[in-house]
Simulated assay, not measured.
Amino acid sequence: MRPNALGRTIAGLVAVAGLAAGTVATAGTSFAAPAATVPTAQTATAAQAAALAATQNFGLTTAEAKNVQDFLADYWGYTGAIDGQLGTNSWKAFQRCLAKYWGYTGDIDGDPGPNTIKALQRLLKADYGYTGDIDGIAGSGTRAAFKRFAA
């Protein structure tokens, strides 16, 4: 996901949560449910969307992503859960690898944006059969090569 798209997604989630909170706050007391005891469908949906925005597996299965996390834990300082969800800490560790060997020059921020993907594509082109352009877009060729890396 592009950084601007991630920002818009988060801003949208904040807006939805704010609207939901405002609607409950202004409802008559006979209609308002206790906020602490009854989660709404809107808050559950917002939480699910935020969790999806926080991870980016680029088409890997949970088992494949666990393989990547094992690699990152063994060699690149990843200390998080081996849960098959490539979140911020997984991508920070991957960015350390990509910075050392594959030309990543951005911040170690855990955001798998275009610069991270370009470095990943260089790694995948060298050893995992990626034949596409180094364009920073995680398209089908990038995803297929990433699956080979994770196998």
Rank of each mutant, 00 (worst) to 15 (best):
L60H: 01
N57S: 04
G106P: 02
A150G: 02
G28I: 13
W76P: 04
G18T: 13
A99H: 03
Q85R: 08
M1K: 15
D70R: 12
P112Q: 05
G59V: 06
Q85L: 14
T88L: 10
D74C: 13
R96A: 01
Y78Q: 01
G87C: 11
R148K: 10
P114Y: 05
V38L: 09
R143W: 06
L124G: 06
A15R: 15
F31N: 14
R8A: 06
K147F: 08
G139Y: 04
G103T: 10
T37I: 03
F71W: 10
R2H: 12
F71L: 08
A51S: 08
T9E: 15
K118L: 00
N89I: 07
D107K: 01
A54N: 04
A126W: 09
G113F: 11
P34G: 08
Y78N: 00
L124R: 07
L98Y: 03
V16H: 04
I137A: 14
G12M: 04
L6V: 15
N115S: 10
A33G: 06
R2E: 12
A27S: 13
A33Q: 12
Y78D: 01
Q48Y: 12
T45N: 11
A73E: 03
N89G: 00
D127S: 10
A27H: 09
G129H: 10
L13Q: 15
F146M: 13
A151I: 05
A51E: 00
D127I: 02
I137L: 15
A15V: 14
G103R: 08
Y78V: 03
P34Q: 13
L124K: 07
F149D: 08
F71I: 10
D83P: 00
T142L: 12
D107W: 03
M1A: 13
I10K: 14
A32Y: 07
Y128V: 04
T37S: 09
Y101D: 07
G103M: 05
E64P: 03
K66F: 09
T9W: 14
A27P: 06
R8W: 09
L72I: 02
L98C: 03
P112G: 02
